[in-house]
């Protein structure tokens, strides 16, 4: 049994009296692709935001590659990291958002080199070389000087994926990466993600794309009311779920599709 690269341990996150996450635990092995499904408001996106501490958990721990997120090991137990060190630590985890959040005043190339230069200390030349390679990987070579507004939604999301990869993260988090896209643009983004998965990247993907979950994921996790209800291989969980709540969710989803 290899050591998990992501280990979420009894994480709880509250907004006022509402528990968005209620004691969630989840281990992800290196290279594993985990699809997270569930209704809106079930806590899926909150889980991703607590993993990289964009929203630090109220209780519980997150370990990335053997390091406790948000804390450093001191002689007298863990000590809370400064904002600056936390951000450095967070750079190990790439994140792709539903609405891309590209920097609109930067060109595609600037979007990709800003953080590698500022956080990793790469020279402009090194960062640009790396960026060009990544743009080729996501099928956007030659678009370095374009501004985000000049690209389609699918192209913007592929730039956003390349931007996250430019930091050479150990894990990639995808928060409904295709939900804001026109249906005909979903495929190009999913293909890039599929290739990334085949390349051995560890991925947590919050998604409503059941086909993607079925084909690309090693494991599917079903979320409801801030808890993991059921987890299993895609074929089993999506086709013959054991929990009534999972069955009801998938039933609703299939009826909507047809």
């Amino acid at each position: 049994m290899t050591q998990p690269i992501v280990s979420v341990q009894s994480v709880t996150k509250r907004y006022g009296s509402f528990a968005a996450l209620d004691g969630v635990s989840l281990d992800v092995r290196p290279g594993e692709v985990v699809a997270i499904i569930g209704a809106s408001g079930s806590g899926k996106s909150t889980l991703l935001r607590t993993i990289n501490h964009l929203d630090p958990p109220d209780a519980g721990q997150v370990w990335i590659d053997g390091r406790l997120m948000g804390f450093s090991e001191g002689p007298r137990g863990p000590r809370r990291l400064s904002e600056r060190d936390l951000r450095r630590q967070r750079a190990e985890v790439g994140m792709v958002f539903q609405h891309f959040h590209l920097f609109p005043h930067f060109t595609v190339l600037q979007n990709l080199i800003e953080a590698p230069m500022a956080v990793r200390g790469l020279s402009r030349h090194e960062a640009s070389e790396r960026a060009r390679g990544l743009l080729a990987e996501v099928g956007l070579e030659g678009r370095e000087t374009a501004f985000p507004a000049e690209l389609s939604g699918g192209q913007q999301q592929r730039v956003a994926i390349a931007r996250a990869l430019a930091m050479q993260p150990k894990v990639m988090l995808f928060d409904e990466p295709t939900s804001a896209l026109d249906p005909e643009l979903v495929g190009e983004v999913l293909r890039v993600m599929q290739r990334l998965a085949e390349g051995g990247m560890t991925m947590l993907v919050v998604t409503h794309e059941m086909d993607f979950a079925e084909e690309a994921a090693d494991r599917v996790v079903f979320f409801d009311q801030g808890r993991i209800v059921e987890t299993g291989p895609p074929a089993q969980l999506l086709r013959s779920p054991t929990e009534p709540r999972t069955q009801a969710f998938l039933h609703r989803l299939l009826r909507k599709d047809r």
Binding site: R87, A91, H101, F103, E114, A115, A118, A164
Partner: peptide, 12 residues
């Protein structure tokens, strides 16, 4: 989301 994206990239 702009500041979230910057934070996720580790920018100070």
């Amino acid at each position: 989301g702009q500041l979230s994206a910057a934070a996720a990239l580790g920018l100070p």
